[in-house]
Nucleic acid binder design. Structure first.
Lengths: 244, 244
DNA sequence: AGTCCCATTATTGCATGCAATCCTTCCTCT
DNA sequence: AGAGGAAGGATTGCATGCAATAATGGGACT
């Protein structure tokens, strides 16, 4: 993260993920350059980056526009992620996990459980839960042994709400959130169990189901949001912690 | 394809896919700019594009290097593609295909069969077979209804030998090639049958198996190539038709 | 001879400037 | 009044130039 380009790209990405630009709005290179204190050349390079990630679209000779995602698109992307994470889980089961990975998973599951039973009242605890959860997923993807699962899933995760880090904490109904996270935790346990018992099909299916629930939760969160405050499409609902 | 950037990107991409740059070699912006008759600025933008596609890697302050892929990486990518195409086939089965799509698939399968039974002696016939085959795959991906399958698979297909268009015609053993393509055609038939009968799991499994065979064929082709002419890694083996 | 260091060259990173294209606004004509 | 079009301004596309960093080569010292 030392070059201007990398910084500019990250700033743009963050802003887009958080919905700080109006949906479908034009992105003028000049003004972005001024805001960021850099030249148009670098802005242009950075826009190319986020274009490839799908956050903006380029119209030749007309510049870049913010891309917005419908809840259906978010759902589609989450299901694709689930399919790939399911593959990862299946491969873990088929190939078997090394002892170090098994220990690592056990530790992660334990920490997740401890945090959850604590009630997750403080923001730091929620962030910690998100981090641990994402790490659990990443460990399995890594342990699958397939070198293209991680980059492909990571590419999908650049879309708002698709990452396994994008967890909706419903401020109005904390009980409901806890219920969902408890279900997620059960999923984790079962997935890990299936992997340890070398049940590839079961591991794959459970992981897909895990993703389906996530997609469903996001739809419900989205619906609730629309009911309450007439929010538009959604470039980034991003309720909690979206970086990485 | 009207702007310099688009042209430059395509030229770079083609060159990389065909292995016209030495594996792991440095790509100097100046010389590329001269060769293409454009400015370094555009070259830099184009290199950014192909970097995101995974064909080159960037080392900060040190420029870009050609990325080469081992046969194992190619295999991994093909299996990921298979997992995603399997998902597409499953969704087709679950949701059912519209009549127009069914007719389209039938026509494609028939044309593929006709070409194959003709022996595929002429190059044009082989290219036609490749096109029809790719179209069949694309139709199912499109018909799946999931808006993120196509872009994700397309992104993987930018890697040499991973695309469903990258078919190895073994010049030494034409019979073997025909045998493999016949097996592929049987797969197509069975996949389509499974979809029509709404057998999602079967369709998914058959499609994955179809990809596994493809990966296996590429490994065999690669091994044969190494035996014969001591070729290095493989940035682009690309024996026949790799564009798109 | 081998190694370390410094100077020179080559290359990248970034900013600026100019031409081409698009968008806006206002005027004209029906 | 509305539609069409032209002129001006705004914005993008591309090229060039300069500063910063890395690669290279030669010389001195061990």
């Amino acid at each position: 993260m030392t070059t201007s380009l990398e910084i500019a790209t990250q700033v743009l990405r963050d802003g887009l993920m958080r919905g700080q630009f109006d949906a479908n709005g034009k992105l003028r290179e000049q003004s972005l350059a001024q805001e960021l204190g850099i030249s148009r050349t670098v802005v242009r390079l950075a826009l190319g980056e986020v274009e490839r990630e799908g956050l903006v679209v380029r119209e030749p000779n007309k510049g870049f526009r913010v891309r917005s995602f419908t809840i259906e698109e978010v759902r589609d992307a989450i299901l694709v992620r689930g399919q790939l994470e399911g593959m990862a889980a299946r491969l873990c089961a088929e190939n078997g996990l090394p002892d170090a990975t098994i220990s690592k998973c056990r530790a992660l599951l334990l920490q997740l459980e401890t945090l959850l039973s604590g009630g997750l009242d403080r923001t730091e605890e929620r962030i910690a839960w998100i981090d641990l959860n994402a790490t659990f997923h990443d460990v399995l993807i890594e342990a699958s042994g397939n070198r293209f699962l991680a980059p492909t899933i990571s590419s999908l995760s650049k879309i708002p709400l698709v990452s396994s880090r994008a967890i909706v904490f419903d401020a109005r109904d904390h009980e409901l959130t806890l219920e969902r996270l408890t279900a997620a935790q059960t999923d984790h346990r079962n997935i890990f169990d299936a992997i340890c018992q070398r049940q590839g099909g079961r591991a794959e299916y459970l992981m897909q189901e895990h993703a389906r629930k996530s997609a469903q939760n996001k739809r419900l969160g989205f619906d609730a949001m629309r009911r309450d405050q007439q929010s538009p499409a959604l470039p980034g609902l991003a309720l909690v912690s979206n970086s990485a």
